[in-house]
Amino acid sequence: MLELRLVQGSLLKKVLDAIKELVKDANFDCSTTGFSLQAMDSSHVALVSLLLRAEGFEHYRCDRNLSMGMNLDNMAKMLKCSGNDDIITIKADDGSDSVTFMFESPTQDKISDFEMKLMDIDSEHLGIPEAEYHAIIRMPSAEFAKICRDLASIGDTVVISVSKEGVKFSTRGDIGAANVVLRQNTTVDKPEEATIIEMNEPVSLTFALRYMNSFTKATPLSNIVTISLSSELPVVVEYKIAEMGYIRFYLAPKIEE
């Protein structure tokens, strides 16, 4: 038996909006730790890892580990039927081939339930090693989204370079080229407006902007994004989900042939 009650139901809608462009079908894993998902895009170039910790739910019951295969477009359709202030409860019985989403209005005067069929999904679970990164950039998520959007209108790929000067986002296309340089800036009114660049070693990597732009669909989940770069690893673009967990996107770089 599984019963997860999330008071801030809108959070689940935002999570779905953040990942459904990248991944079509995925297994949601439920354990005593929390509600999680790990899935790759169909080209196996990007990977998303989601964790919503058990402590973040008002009520969390998961009698045994359960993996529920869901089509994310269908799940988003169901969640769209909830009100923005609704409490969402996810329920499933052991061995059941369906999951139920229950929506309660804040004043308890409207209660709906939507049952969705589960599906069998063959998915490989990858081990993500703990790693030291050459550089870690922490910046406003809206600024990162704007840079990715702006550069995608010029080129298809972005080179992210971190040096003593700061972090540079560069692209090149048929109509021209663009460079955006950000310097560390901690003299801001609010901590979430700061740009912090932690560099152990200079690093420069090339990534497809299409994927970066897809990751920025998670912007409504957090004011801050953290970008971790290492020349030997996929980049990690992380959005923390307040008091609950995170969405991490991993993207394999493009390399010179």
């Binding site: 196996h44 170039v45 679970h125 493009k254």
Partner: peptide, 14 residues
Amino acid sequence: PCLQRKIMDYFKED
């Protein structure tokens, strides 16, 4: 020309 690497090139199956 750039070659797009895959996630599997870096992370192994559990």
